[in-house]
Design a protein around this nucleic acid. Structure first.
Lengths: 339, 339
DNA sequence: ATGAAAGCGCTAACAT
DNA sequence: ATGTTAGCGCTTTCAT
């Protein structure tokens, strides 16, 4: 074992150069197949590198080349089933192209998200993926543009049209599931939507309204509520609706998580799903099929969102192309027992 | 807007130095509060940095200081509910201490995991967290030790005692839940355990056996199966057991995911849980309370595992201390309707 | 085909 | 209190 191994100091180009009696430059060229080095020498160099257990210092390389082969991923909460799936798809796609990801959680905090952007910029990421970002206003886009690296929004589209994003077609998804509910007998459909500012929520409302209209049902704003996407808020809202003694036959939830809370509240009242109340939702999280009552929902293609978003970003990194692109993926209606 | 902004070239210490008429060294000292610079100058420098929108180049800093403030996180599948929770806790804890995480998935592939280690080492991570790693043999530990950075195993303990790990007490957890099952009336308890090589599975088997023994029940190896931790494998195994017409009254599953498949198989046969078959499991994933039948299980403190593991690692990074530490956290029995 | 020199941006050691 | 020099490990130019 060489001295370097013993002292745990990493092997450098210089060490290899000394070993084979060449310059560091030549070794670099040989190792990276840059040409201008005889085949025999290249072989010798590579053999020496292997023998010495050389690990290139990517930090030095990054400094020199001004790129890190690292992309930043900002997400509100990577532990949530849906986001976790998107992140996995991102990591898989990035790894396949030789990129690593630095993951940052924001817990839905605008301030935390801006701080995360700064940290990632300081680490000189080559590009940035923002999943369900809070940076949605024009000023936020300027903020992001100021750093001169490409960025792509995922899941949640942005106000300004001149940014890249990959989302599912929320209007279509809501339209599909509400149309299905109507065709299968529901006419009075409560809608526990995402909170009001959510672009996805807005789009889902459009789809809901369009489906009503196409079926000659008047839109009743009293049936729509905006709540936070949590089990607890779904539960509380549904309980309060039931306690009011209103006639409730069908509930469309802004997301599966809300749907879980809604179902809990319904079952707690000894009501049956779907016999007394039909429940539908949005997202198709991993466990949707194994819940108290298997949940009818709209599947967002989370793998596709992560994969396509990453490919789009890496493309922009490599090409320098700044033309904004919008990918709007098709959702899929998944009918299960809750309706 | 300065030329630098226009051309999108990042501001450097030199730029600030020029702006305030000092050397780059002085600026560095001022910005990092290293002392030896007058208060007035420090203020001037910081003001200039703010004005120029300076973002320190962490890559250069890393190269110079030989540390990246980045830790590598290797996990088999970050999209799985349980791991996603651990990763979230890791990220939170790391961020609070000024560290970022690079996340790598291995999909349970030994080769992929080794490759991930190499990639992370090349990126000069300061330390490594391995969740449910496949690198468990002595040779694997030598491999990891060869890189000279601290590493901590999470969830799954390692064969060699001279490595750091943070796990839950699998013997105790299994003992608790099996004891509970016995005390509440079960005597013949099927055990669909994790696959045979799993150290966690081995420990859970020990706990299972100890509980039987303490209650004067003979251990029957025929009741134990080792299967893969997937919904499908749980379903298939349970169906095959039921099809054999054996008398099955209680099933303890190696993890909640298996439990989901098991419950599906039982319900499909028109059997009732827990009236006909009682089902218990291990992990307490996020949705355990909202499954077809709310699941009795053992809660692994996933937040604690992520948090404590990260703290331990960062401690070792900072202190250089190489004494191996073992954290064995207490699990918690969670009784729900499935038993 | 190979090497010397320069420099990416930063900071530590050593002047002054 | 501030500046000069050197160097982290790498690659790119420009020589030879």
């Amino acid at each position: 074992m060489s001295d370097n191994r013993k002292t745990n100091k990493a092997i450098t180009l210089k060490d290899i150069a000394k070993e084979v009696g060449l310059s560091a430059t030549a070794v670099s060229k040989a190792l990276n197949d840059k040409g201008g080095i005889s085949e025999k020498t290249v072989a010798r160099v590579k053999e020496a590198a292997r023998k010495l257990n050389y690990t290139p210092n990517i930090v030095a390389k990054s400094l020199r080349l001004n790129r890190t082969k690292t992309i930043g991923v900002i997400v509100s909460d990577s532990s949530q089933s849906f986001f976790a799936g998107v992140v996995k798809a991102i990591e898989d796609t990035a790894a396949a192209q030789g990129y690593n990801i630095i993951l940052c959680n924001t817990d839905q905090s605008y301030e935390k998200e801006k701080k995360a952007v700064h940290v990632l910029i300081n680490k000189r990421i080559d590009g940035l993926l923002l999943a369900a970002s809070m940076l949605m206003k024009k000023a936020d886009i300027s903020f992001l543009n100021g750093f001169g690296i490409p960025f792509v929004f995922l899941i949640r589209r942005n106000e300004s049209e001149d940014t890249d994003f990959v989302i599912n077609d929320n209007v279509l998804g809501a339209y599909q599931i509400v149309s299905y509910l109507i065709k299968s007998g529901s006419r009075r459909i409560h809608f526990l939507n995402l909170y009001e500012e959510s672009p996805s929520g807005k789009d889902r409302l459009l789809g809901y309204q369009k489906a009503l209209k196409d079926n000659d049902i008047d839109f009743d704003p009293a049936l729509v509520r905006n709540i936070k996407p949590s089990i607890e808020d779904g539960y509380i809202e549904m309980r309060s609706l039931l306690d009011k003694g209103q006639e409730i036959t069908t509930v469309f939830c802004g997301c599966d998580i809300i749907g879980i809370g809604v179902m809990e509240a319904i079952l707690e009242k000894q009501l049956k799903i779907p016999e007394n109340v039909r429940v539908a939702a949005y997202d198709d999280i991993d466990f949707a099929a194994y819940l108290r009552v298997p949940l009818t929902t709209v599947r967002q293609p989370k793998d596709m969102i992560g994969c396509k978003g990453t490919e789009l970003l890496i493309n922009k990194i490599k090409s320098g192309n700044r033309e904004p692109q919008h990918l709007i993926l098709k959702p899929e209606l998944v009918i299960r027992q809750s309706t």
